[in-house]
């Protein structure tokens, strides 16, 4: 029975699983130079065709190891005994990384059952056309989402969220960024992602004009 060495991506780049990202990148540039056409170090050992094949493996190895999340996924596979370059490809890993990506979603879904549904307020939300900061704050408090939770989910700093709720234009960046933040907030609070930001930005500009004029 033939026992194959089965190079893994680390072997291809001549690094090890403990190497830093920086070392991986350096090793990649060395390996690419090694297998680029006409390198005298290949002379009488590898044919041009074999060198091209190695170059392809080098590129593939780096597209995985050079990417932190793909590298982590690959490390898991190595831990489970998948070793050869012929057993796993970059495309597979990329596909798998997309499947595991929506991990964040249950966090958003969990918000729902944590508040008591008040029909009259729900109707008001549905009917609302003026999405002011004050309204956003009331919906947030109705759904029992703290400022910090909202900030952790949307990755918008709680200082900005506070400023958005109080329409404090002087504490906020350019309107184009504010709009992005409001879209995020509306999404988490289950508000209309089109109507909400449009209305808010209209009110926001009015406050802005009032402040400067």
């Amino acid at each position: 029975m033939e026992m194959n060495t089965k190079f893994n991506y680390y072997d291809i780049l001549e690094v090890n699983p403990q190497s830093s990202q920086n070392e991986v990148t350096e090793a990649y540039s060395r390996a690419r130079i090694t297998y680029s056409g006409g390198n005298p170090a290949l002379y009488t050992i590898f044919t041009q065709k074999e060198a091209r094949e190695y170059l392809r493996l080098v590129e593939e190895a780096y597209s995985v190891l050079g990417n932190k999340s793909l590298r982590a996924l690959y490390d898991q596979k190595l831990g489970r005994g998948v070793t050869g370059v012929d057993q796993v490809t970059y495309e597979q890993l990329l596909q798998e990384s997309k499947i595991t990506r929506p991990l964040d979603l249950p966090k958003l879904g969990r918000l729902k059952p944590e508040y008591e549904i008040d029909e009259s307020f729900e109707t008001r939300i549905r009917a609302e056309t003026q999405f002011s900061g004050e309204f956003l704050r009331r919906v947030r408090e109705y759904k029992h989402v703290t400022l910090e939770q909202l900030s952790a989910i949307t990755k918008v700093s709680s200082f900005y969220i506070h400023a958005i709720e109080h329409m404090e234009a002087q504490n906020l960046p350019a309107p184009v960024f504010v709009r992005g933040y409001v879209i995020q907030i509306c999404r988490v609070l289950g508000l209309d992602e089109k109507k909400g930001p449009d209305s808010y930005m209209k009110l926001f500009r009015e406050t802005l004009a009032a402040a400067s004029g």
Partner: peptide
Amino acid sequence: PGTTTFRDHLK
């Protein structure tokens, strides 16, 4: 490339 080395072949 990538799957066999002289060590395997010798074996």
